[in-house]
Structures are given as structure tokens and as C-alpha cells.
Amino acid sequence: MTEQPLLRLRDVEKRFGDFVALDGVSLTLRAGTVTCLVGPSGSGKSTLLRTVNLLERLDGGAVYLRGEMLGFTRSGDHRRPVPKKVARRQVVNFGMVFQSFNLIPQLTATENVALGPVEVLRVGRSEARHQAHELLTRVGLADRVDHYPAELSGGQQQRVAIARALAMKPSVLLFDEPTSALDAELVAEVLAVIKELAEEGFTMLIVTHELAFARDIADEVVMMEDGRIIESGPPQDILLNPTTERARRFFASVSH
């Protein structure tokens, strides 16, 4: 039985001026799977994530969520961008977690988490606060619900950001180097939360440099370089027995 993939990228291209950031990337995510994107900086991992989330507009190819093309609609012999309202509805399918957290500084942890549900999903205020408390408890921050971001450590801020992404009940969670801005001792607490979510069956696309973590939780590891996918497959195959020389060198350089 072959089910329709949840997320499908076909020949995605993205250029910044003359620089080709994504050079025909195709990728399929089945529901409930975890995909880790690895590769050297500048290889296009983050751009790929941002393109899926419509933070960047792709220049060629397409992204489909449950068969629906994102960001564009057919108009005769060409495509044009969808209206902003449609784009916002599509974006809400993704929960994005940024490298630099991007919490809203003038809002408490609870207010950060409840903002999207109240403003976008039109959930009642008290209901949204209640949900926010539950989510913050789930990421281990029951005692920090009324703190402002500046009063939290980096690891705590990132966990609030994860709770905020979960609050929108997304179909896919996108993580853009979620632990790269954290001190070494705070990385573990964030990775533990992500791992828990993976075990609960969330579909996730994670850009990461934590190869041990990728091996631990990924169903598929995808390695990118120069805007292309150069290897992909189950983590034990990719990380332990890479077929390309470039991948071998990359893994050797980061694992020590």
C-alpha cells in the first residue's frame, strides 16, 4: 500500500542573484518520519527549510503538502503567487523553530505560545492560555510560564519556541539548527525535547550539525552540498558508510 507522501519537494530551485542556493532539490517526507538535513554551511539546508515555509520564494520546481502546491497557483500556461491569505493558511501547516529562537521579547512565555492560537486560529484567550501552560509543561517549563524571554536561558527560550510552534498544531515541524546558538550544556535539554516529539510521531525536518543526534532519531539523513542532495538514506548507511568521497570527508571533519 503506497500512501500519498505528506510533504514532497520536486526540483526546487532558489537563486540569490547569481548565487544558486538550491539547484534542483527533490525530497519526500512520509507522515510520522524524521528527516535530518546535514552538510557544510552554505550548502542550502536552511534555504531549503525557509523555502518550504514560504519565507523565501522559490524560483523553480514546487513544494507539495498532501498534494497541494504551496505558494503558487496555476494560471493558464504559468504559475502565480497565491493571495497572502492563502499563503498564511499554508504556512500554518508548518511549525518553524529558528536557530536564534525569535521569541517576542515583550511577551511572556505563555503569551508567546498563545499568540498564534489567539490571533490566527481564533481560539479563546483563556483556552489558549490553558493550552500554552500544557505545552510549556510538556517541554519542562511549568515553572517559567510567566517569565519574559530575557529572563530565560537559551535552552529554555528554545523550548518555549518549540512550544510556540506546537501550539499551531502543525502537520510538519521544521527545525533550523535548533541548538547551534546554545552553550554546550544547554544543547541536551533541547535535543531531549525534540527526541520526545519524534517518539510521539511528529513529522519533522531538521537542519542540524549534531550527527550523533541525527543517527539517533532520524529515519532518513539527507546530505546537501552546493544546493544539491549528494547522499540520502537511513542514518546508519549515510553516516557510517557514505558512498561519496565528499560525504566521507564531511563526516570525518565534524565528528571529531
Binding site: 515555509n53 514560504l54 519565507l55 497572502k84 498564511r88 493558511r89 504556512v91 500554518v92 508548518f94 511549525g95 518553524m96 529558528f98 536564534s100 529562537f101 525569535n102 521569541l103 517576542i104 521579547p105 515583550q106 499568540l115 498564534g116 490571533e119 490566527v120 510556540r164 510552534a165 499551531m168
Partner: peptide, 30 residues
């Protein structure tokens, strides 16, 4: 305003009006 604030608002599905009134507006006034 840090670009990340606009990106976070976009990812939550906030409209431009909501982004300015709820997220970046208070930071700008400050």
C-alpha cells in the same frame, strides 16, 4: 527590529497588520 521577529510572525501565520500591532509595533514604540 530584528528580522527574526518578522520571520517568527510569518511562521505563525500572522497578517502584516497583526505583525505590526502585536509583535513589532511595541518594540518600535520602545
Amino acid at each position: 527590529v530584528h528580522q527574526g521577529q518578522f520571520e517568527a510572525s510569518h511562521s505563525l501565520g500572522l497578517s502584516a497588520w497583526q505583525t505590526y500591532t502585536k509583535v513589532v509595533g511595541p518594540q518600535i514604540i520602545r
